[in-house]
Design a binder for these strands. Structure first.
Length: 898
RNA sequence: GCGAGGGUAGCCAAGCGGCCAACGGCGGCGGACUCAAGAUCCGCUCGUGUAGACGUUCAAGGGUUCGAUUCCCUUCCCUCGCACCA
């Protein structure tokens, strides 16, 4: 057999056409509750990369597995077709985003078909079509009606390269880089449309606990992102310190700024608050900046919220600590952020590290008010807070009436006792700003009227379609004058359209619902069918969407459940975050130039090889290295398998149904049992390892003896079907060659009678026995054994073992001797009983004596082949006493004649 | 700093209370086949050992247990996410 591979191109084309003709992957609308398998739809960049191939091979393999198991399966594909790259590409190539996008979709569709992915293309969607995006607009208006849309002036993240705003989720890392182009993000003040995802913050957070089919990492990332914190808000009266008014002339009263609210999680430390700090853009800071040169300079020139050092400037104001009545100085400080808490904080240098650093720098008081929990009966001892803050909870000291309370209780009491204090919950999650100053997106369906303000477009006027693309700097919609000018739907006066489009994450927040009824013209999705078919049973995609897409989709699903009658509150039951395909430990990327092109691999080795190599290389969630060597050997494996099937078909063997055949039969059963479990768990690598092992066994069988045709064919047939989810084309080819009618895609998954436990015990027995023989031969220096006897233990030892496992008597020997047939064994029984007693705790049940005999008998050929000596498996009744003494359940005695 | 996930023989990587000197693969070594190479097949790959044994190992150190690679604690290291978050 040569290693030259096989004609994959012909095979793959033939079966892709056959699937097409048969509509093999269509899901009729009338199925009841299909298994919904979904990969995150791609942005149509024009080229399928290895990440896509891995992602979609996982979903495809799982979908095929479930279909062969008899499930109805929904496995659709679509396009995340709006987005900036299309706009940039259109500018560069002097075309328009629509044509460019559809070109890309066409080539990527071809690439997907060449990979053999089995999608229901009748359900294909592309978000850039008015048929799709009208429902973005409709949903926007429904959200609006439900009070979940808000327009407000906001400080927003602005990417100067993309010339658009970004959601907080789209800004990455400490350096605050744009998620698409890695440009440092700037801040801008803009009027924006927001979806009020914060209204769902609590549910989005709490429901994470029930997402048991999700990886912990993703769940944790979402928890962090929502960032709920319980604490208290408390007011500090802020006013000019008496002396500060002197400069303004006599008689003027100190100016009052009134109560300023601070948020704290550590109200228990309030007695140690020795200064108060405001964010540079807090209204009071801004007011002060107008008249105080020092504050102005700090706010406008010195404040550096990104710096490591906390900086600040004294204001001359004081704040009244509501717990102590003390006047404490007020600073404007850059470590106070206006979007965290209330933009103002009480600073407790004794118990907060950052406050401590600032206090040291400005020479402010540092007072310990919390002591570590003392030993029982001892008095709390103040911690040394001169060098560093003590940040743990503990017992209050220096806190008046509250001294002696533990932190937790003190927080509750102080919240009750201080008039202005009340419990408050802070979230890190912000509302989702969806306005984008770009052309290639869903127009926000709003008309701005001077008289009526912003008015949503009436439902009957939807969709608001995009005008022709204008190649301009800035927002093309702004330049589309004719499109922009319209009339107000309320007063009929002249008005202008909103020129911002929606974040493309709006599109992807509900696309999984559209697949249920992709052509529906009067609603975004068929409610009844969505209720039957949702949620997605298995969702697969990259970890990069852990927060953005997956959080927004959960939000949309909950809103649709509350207001549109959807009976599901979570979109994705099981989530798999697949690992990266790397090259020499590094992420493949265009900039590094270490990209392996799937197209090249498909041409050279075929789609089946690419798919099989990827699926066997690692567990789906792990990163792994692409290896050309691995690809070659995978290809060789498929070619060998093809050769085996062809050899079998052209020249059917006529061997007996002997012991060897029964061994092979047992291995077929075992492989089916194990591989099926692994497919269920999506651990394709293990399933495929088992399958490849079976191929090896079959080959060994063929090479050792004339195979029993029925057994050998059963093995080949099982292998072909176990491989079919991952290498579907070749599986079809071989299924056909084996003389089956119909597609393997529709064939029944093979089933096994045996369970895992039986399989592992049998394999272990055989393996251990072979291992023992090798040991003996080597250690005893036997050059060339003449004969090997394998002696199975007598029945009474199995009985004794069972008794020993079940017994909890102290004296096991006594218990055993109550059985007459054991007692009859005399010294042998006593000896074995002692062995059992010694290993009491570690005993476990073996196969039955008959099963052990059969297993060894059928595996004897392996030993004969290896040692080139006849092997006899001896039953206990035929064996001599010397041999029997060494035989135990799970461990036959071995006699080698040399 | 906080949180999540990890650290297993030359490398990759399973195992996650006894079946474990620890699956599998790669690499290396030896053998079969072959004119030869490749492919394929059979072994070996911590140490000692003339009958299946013993000794030392699963980041380091403690602990629980009759028994720990597997459970608990501490420390160190790696990867990822979040973070001047009040």
């Amino acid at each position: 057999m040569s290693d030259a591979g096989y004609d994959h191109a012909t095979v793959e084309r033939r079966w892709q056409e056959a699937w097409d003709e048969e509509d093999a992957y269509r899901t009729p609308d009338d199925v009841e509750d299909p298994t919904y398998v979904l990969g995150m739809y791609p942005y149509p960049s024009g080229k399928l990369h290895m990440g896509h191939v891995r992602n979609y091979t996982i979903t495809d393999a799982y979908a095929r597995f479930r279909r062969m198991q008899g499930d109805d399966v929904l496995h659709p594909m679509g396009w995340d077709a709006f987005g900036l790259p299309a706009e940039n590409a259109a500018k560069e190539r002097d075309t328009n985003p629509r044509d460019w996008t559809f070109d890309c979709i066409e080539t990527m569709t071809e690439q997907m078909e060449s990979m053999g992915f089995g999608y229901d293309w009748d359900r294909e969607i592309a978000t850039c079509t008015p048929e799709y995006y009208q429902w973005n607009q409709w949903l926007f208006e429904r959200f609006h009606e439900e009070g979940l849309v808000e327009r407000r002036d906001a400080e927003v993240n602005w990417c100067p390269h993309c010339e658009t705003v970004l959601a907080d989720e789209q800004v990455e890392g400490e350096a605050e880089l744009c998620w698409r182009c890695d440009t440092p993000v700037e801040q801008r003040e803009l009027e924006q449309w927001f979806l009020k995802i914060t209204e769902y913050a609590d549910e989005l957070l709490e429901a994470i606990d029930d997402l048991e089919g999700w990886p912990n990492s993703v769940r944790q990332m979402q928890r962090n992102w929502i960032g709920r914190q319980y604490g208290a808000e408390v007011d500090f009266e802020v006013s000019e310190a008496p002396r500060a008014s002197d400069g303004r002339g006599e008689g003027s009263e100190p100016r009052e700024y009134g109560p300023v609210t601070a948020f704290t999680t550590r109200l228990d430390t309030i007695h140690g608050a020795t200064f108060f700090a405001l964010a540079p853009d807090h209204p009071i800071s801004e007011a002060l900046a107008e008249e105080d040169e020092d504050v102005r300079r700090f706010v406008e020139e010195e404040a550096d919220p990104d710096g490591d050092e906390p900086n600040g400037v004294a204001t001359g104001l004081t704040a009244t600590n509501p717990a102590t009545g003390d006047e404490i100085p007020v600073y404007v400080a850059d470590f106070v952020l206006s979007d965290v808490g209330t933009g103002a904080l009480m600073a407790v240098p004794g118990h907060d590290e950052r406050d401590h650093i600032f206090a040291e720098k400005k020479g402010l008081d540092i007072v310990p008010v919390i002591a570590p929990e003392p030993e029982a009966g001892e008095a709390p001892e103040a911690p040394d807070v001169e060098e560093a803050a003590y940040t743990e909870d503990g017992v209050l000291i220096n806190s008046g009436d509250y001294s002696g309370l533990d932190s937790e209780t003190a927080r509750e009491r102080l919240t009750e006792d201080i008039d202005s204090a009340e419990e408050a919950t802070q979230y890190q999650l912000r509302d989702w700003g969806i306005s984008r100053q770009r052309y290639w997106g869903t127009p926000i369906p709003v008309i701005h009227c001077e008289e009526c303000g912003p008015v949503t477009v009436p439902e009957e006027d939807l969709p608001v379609e995009l005008p022709e693309f204008i190649n301009t700097t800035g927002n093309p919609l702004d330049a589309a004058e004719e499109w922009k000018q319209t009339t107000c739907p309320e007063c009929g006066g002249p008005a202008e359209r909103e020129t911002d489009t929606m974040d493309t994450f709006v599109d992807s927040s509900w696309y999984f619902l559209r697949y249920v009824s992709p052509g529906l013209e009067d609603a975004p999705f068929d409610l009844e069918r969505a209720n039957d078919w949702m949620p997605v049973d298995q969702y697969v995609g990259g970890i990069e969407h852990a927060v953005m897409h997956l959080l927004y989709s959960r939000f949309f699903t909950k809103v649709l459940a509350d207001h549109e009658g959807l009976e599901h509150r979570e979109p994705f039951t099981n989530l798999l975050a697949q690992g990266m395909v790397q090259l020499e430990g590094e992420k493949m990327s265009k900039s590094k130039g270490n990209v392996v092109s799937p197209q090249r691999i498909v041409e050279e080795y075929g789609a089946d090889t690419a798919r099989l190599f990827m699926m066997q290389a690692a567990q789906p969630e792990r990163d792994f290295d692409w290896s050309e060597e691995g690809v070659r050997s995978t290809n060789a494996f498929l070619a060998r398998l093809k050769g085996m099937v062809e050899d079998y078909v052209s020249d059917e063997p006529a061997g007996d149904d002997d012991a060897v055949a029964s061994y092979v039969d047992g291995e077929i059963e075992a492989t089916i049992a194990l591989a099926t479990d692994e497919y269920d768990d999506l651990t394709f690598n293990k399933a495929l390892r088992e399958t490849q092992d079976l191929v090896r066994t079959l080959r060994q069988y063929r090479d050792y003896a004339e195979p029993h045709a029925e057994t050998y064919e059963r093995g080949l047939s099982a292998v072909v079907r176990l491989l079919a989810p991952v290498a579907p084309h070749l599986a079809e080819e071989l299924w056909d060659e084996l003389g089956n009618d119909g597609l393997v895609a529709d064939a029944a998954w093979p089933t096994a009678e045996v369970d895992r436990d039986h399989v592992t015990k049998r394999r272990r027995l055989v393996e251990n026995t072979r291992e023992d023989i090798r040991d003996i031969v080597e250690v005893a220096g036997i050059e060339d054994p003449n004969a090997i006897d394998v002696v199975v233990a007598p029945d009474w030892k199995y009985d004794a073992l069972e008794i020993a496992i079940e017994s909890d008597a102290d004296n096991l020997i006594g218990e055993l001797m109550q059985e007459s047939h054991i007692r009859e064994q005399g010294d042998a029984a006593a000896d074995y009983g002692q062995d059992l007693q010694a290993e009491r705790e570690a005993l476990s049940m073996t196969l039955s004596p008959e099963a052990e005999y059969a297993a060894l008998e059928s595996a004897a050929w392996l030993i004969e082949r290896e040692f080139e000596a006849p092997v006899t498996v001896v039953g206990a009744d035929e064996a001599d006493e010397g041999a029997l003494a060494n035989a135990e359940p799970g461990r036959p005695a071995i006699e080698i004649d040399d």
